[in-house]
Simulated scan of single mutants.
Amino acid sequence: NYDLFKLACRVSAKRLFPNFSFLDAPFNKSYYKEGHPETEVAYMGCRTRVLGNTFDKNNEITYGRGNLSFTSINLPRIAINSKGNIEWFFEELERKMELVTKQLLDRFQIQASKTVRNFPFLMGQGIWIGSDKLSTDDKIGEVLKHGTLSVGFIGLAEALVALTGSHHGQTVESRNLGLEIVGFMRDYLDRLSKEKQLNFTLLATPAEGLSGRFLRIDRKKYGVIPGVTDRDYYTNGFHIPVYFPLSAYEKIQIEAPYHALTNAGHITYIELDGDPNKNLEAFEKVIRTMKESGIGYGSINHPVDRDPVCGYNGIIDDECPGCGRKEKDGPIKFDRIRRITGYLVGTLDRFNDAKRAEVADRVKHNV
Rank of each mutant, 00 (worst) to 15 (best):
L272W: 05
E292A: 10
I270T: 07
E271L: 13
D275C: 05
P276A: 13
I295P: 13
F283H: 11
D273W: 07
P276L: 12
N279V: 11
E271Y: 15
L280H: 11
K278C: 03
R288N: 13
M290V: 06
G296N: 01
D273V: 06
G296Q: 01
D275M: 05
F283W: 14
G294P: 03
G298N: 12
I267G: 00
T289W: 15
I295F: 14
E292R: 14
K291Y: 05
K291Q: 14
I270W: 03
P276Q: 11
L280Y: 08
I267A: 05
G265M: 01
E281Y: 10
I295V: 15
F283P: 04
I270R: 04
V286F: 08
Y269C: 02
G294K: 00
E281C: 11
L272H: 02
I267Y: 03
I287H: 08
T268E: 02
E281F: 11
G265Y: 01
A264D: 01
E284Y: 05
G294M: 03
G265E: 01
M290I: 06
Y269D: 01
S299R: 10
Y269N: 01
G294L: 02
I295A: 07
Y269S: 04
R288Q: 11
E284I: 08
E271C: 11
P276M: 14
Y269T: 05
A264Y: 00
P276R: 05
N279M: 09
A264Q: 00
V286Y: 04
V286H: 05
K278M: 08
A282F: 09
F283A: 09
A282V: 05
P276H: 12
E284A: 12
